[in-house]
């Protein structure tokens, strides 16, 4: 299938604000990359099952459900842009 990407729309899905300049540049560059990857669609994959199982990957890796020490709250929250009382602070979202 030949596809055309609408970069501004996809950026919205990705929660990413782009400037007009960026949108224009990416539109061209990504269209070029998509042209390149288009060739994949010509490859015969009929010998591969629909849900390819990767034989090298483990399934159902289980461990004992035991209590372990977690990270100290302070060491985690020091990375939060804003926090108080062991909570991350976000701007008000309800009126």
């Amino acid at each position: 299938m030949k596809s055309s990407i609408d970069v501004a729309y996809v950026a919205g899905l990705a929660r990413l604000e782009l400037s007009e300049q960026e949108t224009e540049t990416f539109q061209k560059q990504i269209a070029g990359i998509l042209d390149y990857v288009e060739a994949l669609q010509q490859i015969d994959v009929s010998s591969v099952p629909d849900t390819p199982i990767d034989p090298n990957l483990p399934t159902n890796v289980l461990r004992e459900d035991t209590q372990r020490e977690s990270l100290p709250v302070e060491s985690v929250l020091r990375n939060a842009p804003k926090s108080a009382n062991h909570l991350v602070i976000m701007p008000k979202i309800v009126e």
Partner: peptide, 24 residues
């Protein structure tokens, strides 16, 4: 609102190659 904060924080924090790949 939160959506604005996500969009702006990511726009300001990521460089062009990362943005390009996120979009792709």
């Amino acid at each position: 609102d939160p959506l604005t904060i996500y969009r702006k924080s990511r726009a300001e924090g990521f460089g062009p190659e990362v943005k390009r790949r996120i979009i792709l």
